[in-house]
Design a protein around this nucleic acid. Structure first.
Length: 857
RNA sequence: GCGAGAGUGGCGGAAUUGGUAGACGCAGACGACUCAAAAUCGUCCGCCGCAAGGCUUGGGGGUUCGAGUCCCCCCUCUCGCACCA
């Protein structure tokens, strides 16, 4: 017998891809009557090259898409490009290539790479967010949200990234640094556009509970980010005139129960009162300036001492007429949260306690763990646990909850200057989403600033506001500001000379509705209501956990906003979310400490050496693949050497998809061996298809049907690594059956037919080649998922492990429906059991049907 | 500091509701085929022990006939948030 021909993946794969294209196999029609299934992977930024993280992400999505198609769903599996953003402008500054050209060139390159992976994508729906057609619709969406009252313009302190020269949202500041540039973020006062995400804070929080197919981790992160807390808005009356002209100092507190422990008031350095006081007092001005210089990084906050300056102002205690409280400006009060002012209760808040100890303010405990504890006092650790009130007049003896309610009731009933002194309030940590960016390569905000009319939306007929092509990047700042004519425009309302808005939108706006656009990418409205409502929510969304807050929260907000603006209902955009792990690789350095690429390194006699020079190489930690540490493997190299199926299979093997996977040559080899092995099995089996065989082949049939059942469960639960392990077992079973002359050819054929269908979602090209080889018609990619026959999985006997005193000592095979008495008799007759009983009589025999037997002596 | 998750062979990792720990893959050992090599196939492969047997899921306790799985305490690592009143 001549050796089977080796499977030439690169050649075979290209052939099948062109057949799929000719058959237009993956186009999805909105009017298809089958039940829908929407699979989406987070669309890529067109950086220029596909990396292994993309390969992993899109492989998983493609398995789900192909599996659902085989199960009879009308599957939507589109692809697009998150194409606006800074890197294109950085490239323009560096190389003088226009951002548009750079971006579209990159898209072309990456599209070709994606296509070489054999993904079952409906490319007819492709778009890039920088397409005029897309951002035109986004401008219409913006105006619709403006109309609906969901967009505001306000002056506020913003995070300014001095390197990218743009504003960042709070979500984009990490440890006091810009999320992209890494530069230390500064605070600036600017007039900005905001989306009113806080309008939906309650609902965004509440609805997290309905997202059952999201990771708990992501839901928790969003819950914390939204940060709901219930408390009391409370007004303290000044006993001395205040420099800001107000009669009360207003605070928000979640601990109104501790009001009798209050010993001072404090306001943020950014508070209007502090600013007013600073005008008259240079010491205060100096303190505020000092606070603004202080960094916001984690370490600096950790180390920063609680500091403050008295404002020489006092307020009245609301319940103790004998008491007034001094007002400070303090460095640990955030202007962003609540009212930017607090009452300090040192005994029950650590920060307040630190502050009080430093400035020698009274520390009065008002909650104690037990009523019996008469000596309870607070040292240098605030008491924040549960307990009962004391030292608190009418609150004495109450629980914290009772006391909170009692204080709130009294304050709501009492008035100062015609308004209630207190108000129960819910506060959120979530801030409105600032979307203004002072950059060129983004969606222009379609408004005009008119000296007479104020803010005027660009009329429908004048849309889109197109980005001018003739821009330069040699001066810092926003190129749109430097453009000779872009900002010069007549007011659409009065015709006077006006200024066009030059800010563009945060690119997270682009990605907050693209999944809705995919449902009707050609629609002449931003969203086709019918298509969106039919397709959304996305049934399975797959991407990196790094988007747990930003993109996923913004998208949830957008669907609510879009609903309010009348475009249709889709409460939650993503019904199922899966966050996949990263792709890692060993790192290498030469003796000079310079990073080396993996393909520069070779193993010789178990030692890593430089392939060309033979110089020793230091093997470092396993880290996420990144350009800086050079531990990258180019998908193109793998696909052109081993084929896409090998890369795909490797990505699904061994490691659970939510964990980081280590890319290793050995792992790729193993995946490739499996591809070859399957092809070889088909080659060996086909000549046997006509043979009757001397047996019934029942063993193989049982194994196949059990594997189908298990692989189905594995793919449904996205446990691809388990499905891969079962495919290995299945191939071993088939290999044995081929070698056994008993196996009828028809049974071999059935098993191969089933296995090909089962691995087709993972290795679609190999599936087609095998499909054809076993004589099937049509495409494996269009074939139905294999069924299994439960009757074949029913056994007549069962082998039970037998334990003596909890340790396994033997096995016993009994009829499946054997009576416990019979099993017990059989077990006690076993030599092994007798030996380990050592003459003792068993006290008890525990029989768990179908599971285990335990003899207890 | 707060919150979440994870610790299983040399490695990646399996293990329904508590029921045979280590599936499958990698690496390794031996063997077959071959003039030889590659490829492939077969056997072995947690630790100690010649064996019988004993030990073993980060450590320590507990519940149970039986614990990787449940409970309590501790250790380590990863991630997220971070002065949120």
């Amino acid at each position: 017998m001549s050796p089977p021909e080796r499977y030439n993946a690169p050649v075979v794969e290209a052939k099948w891809r062109s057949h799929w294209d000719e058959a237009d196999l993956y186009r999805t029609h909105n009017d298809d009557p089958r039940p829908k299934y929407y699979v989406l992977e987070m669309f890529p930024y067109p950086s220029g090259r596909l990396h292994m993280g993309h390969v992993r992400n899109y492989t998983m999505g493609d398995v789900v898409a192909r599996y659902r198609r085989a199960r009879g769903y009308n599957v939507l599996h589109p692809m697009g490009w998150d194409a606006f953003g800074m890197p294109a402008e950085n490239a323009a500054m560096r190389t003088k290539i226009h951002p548009a050209q750079w971006t579209y060139d990159n898209i072309a390159a990456m599209r070709a790479q994606l296509k070489s992976m054999g993904l079952s994508i409906d490319w007819s729906r492709e778009f890039a967010t920088c397409d005029v057609a897309y951002y035109h619709q986004q401008q219409r969406l913006f105006l619709a949200l403006l109309e609906a009252g969901l967009v505001t313009r306000k002056t506020s302190r913003v995070n300014w990234d001095p390197e990218d020269m743009t504003v960042l949202a709070n979500e984009q500041v990490i440890d006091g640094r810009g999320w992209r540039s890494g530069a230390l973020v500064e605070q600036r006062e600017l007039s900005q556009w905001f989306f009113k995400i806080t309008d939906f804070a309650e609902d965004l929080l509440e609805a997290l509970g309905t997202l059952e197919r999201w990771p708990d981790k992501v839901r928790l992160m969003q819950r914390n980010w939204i940060g709901r807390s219930e408390g009391l808005f409370l007004r303290f009356k000044y006993t001395t005139p205040s420099p800001d002209g107000q009669t009360t100092l207003d605070v928000f507190t979640t601990r109104p129960d501790t009001i009798f422990g209050a010993s001072f008031m404090a306001v943020s350095p950014g508070h209007p009162l502090a600013k007013a006081a600073a005008e008259a007092n240079p010491d205060i001005a100096e303190f505020i300036a000092e606070c603004e210089r202080m960094g916001t990084s984690a370490v600096e906050i950790e180390k920063a001492e609680k500091k403050g300056v008295p404002l020489n102002l006092r307020v009245a205690h609301p319940f103790d007429e004998t008491k007034t409280l001094p007002v400070y400006v303090a460095n640990f009060i955030l202007m962003d949260y609540g009212t930017g002012a607090i009452f300090g209760c040192p005994a029950h808040d650590q920060r307040d306690l630190d502050f009080a100890r430093k400035y020698d303010l009274p520390v009065t405990a008002v909650v104690r763990p037990s009523d019996a504890d008469d000596t309870f006092a607070v040292g240098n650790e605030a008491f924040t646990g549960v307990g009962r009130l004391f030292n608190s007049r009418f609150l004495d003896g109450m629980s914290i909850e009772q006391a909170k309610a009692a204080v709130a009731d009294k304050m709501e009933a009492r008035e100062i200057d015609g308004a209630p002194q207190g108000r129960r309030e819910v506060n959120f940590r979530l801030r409105d989403w600032g979307i203004s960016r002072q950059r060129y390569w983004g969606c222009p905000i379609p408004v005009v600033h008119c000296p007479a009319c104020g803010i005027v939306p660009v009329p429908e007929a004048d849309l889109p506001v197109k980005l001018p092509d003739d821009v330069t990047f040699d001066t810092p700042g926003n190129p749109l500001d430097h453009h000779p004519t872009f900002s010069k425009v007549a007011c659409p309302r009065c015709g006077a000379d006006a200024r066009r808005e030059t800010d563009t939108m945060d690119t997270f706006v682009d990605s907050s509705w693209y999944f809705a656009r995919f449902t009707a990418p050609e629609a002449d409205t931003p969203i086709n209501t019918e298509a969106m409502e039919a397709w959304l929510p996305v049934d399975q969304y797959i991407g990196g956990v790094e988007h747990a807050i930003l993109h996923l929260l913004y998208s949830r907000f957008f669907m609510r906003a879009v609903d309010r603006a009348g475009f249709g209902k889709c409460h939650e955009p993503f019904a199922g979310l899966f966050t996949q792990g990263m792709v890692t690789h060993e790192t290498y350095k030469n003796e000079a400490g310079q990073w080396l690429f993996p393909d520069e390194v070779e193993l010789r006699e178990g030692k890593a050496v430089h392939a060309k020079t033979g110089a020793p190489v230091i093997v470092g930690a396993i880290e996420k693949m990144s350009k800086t540490s050079k531990n990258v493997v180019d998908p193109d190299d793998i696909i052109s050497t081993y084929g896409a199926d090998t890369a795909r299979f490797f990505m699904l093997s061994d490691t659970p998809p939510e964990r980081d996977i280590e890319w290793t040559d050995a792992g790729v080899d193993a995946a490739h061996r499996f591809v070859q092995r399957v092809w070889r099995l088909v080659g060996e089996a086909v000549p046997r298809f006509g043979e009757p065989g001397t047996g019934d082949g029942l063993e193989l049939r049982k194994a196949s049907h059990a594997h189908i059942r298990d692989i189905t469960n594995d793919i449904e639960s996205l446990a691809f690594n388990r499905a891969v392990a079962r495919l290995y077992e299945w191939s071993h079973a088939i290999q044995k059956a081929i070698a056994a002359p008993q196996t009828p050819g028809a049974v071999l054929r059935e098993a191969l037919d089933q296995m090909i269908r089962a691995f087709a979602p993972m290795m679609p090209h190999l599936a087609e080649e095998c499909w054809e080889a076993i004589g099937n018609q049509g495409f494996a990619a269009a074939a139905a998922w294999p069924d299994y026959d439960p009757a074949l999985l029913v056994e007549t006997t069962v082998t039970l492990p037998v334990q003596v005193n909890g340790k396994k000592r033997a096995e016993v095979t009994v009829p499946k429906d054997a009576a416990n008495d019979d099993i017990e008799r059989a077990v006690l007759a076993l030599d092994e059991v007798k030996r380990f009983l050592d003459g003792k009589t068993p006290r008890k025999v525990i029989i768990v049907p179908q599971r285990i037997v335990n003899v207890v002596a």
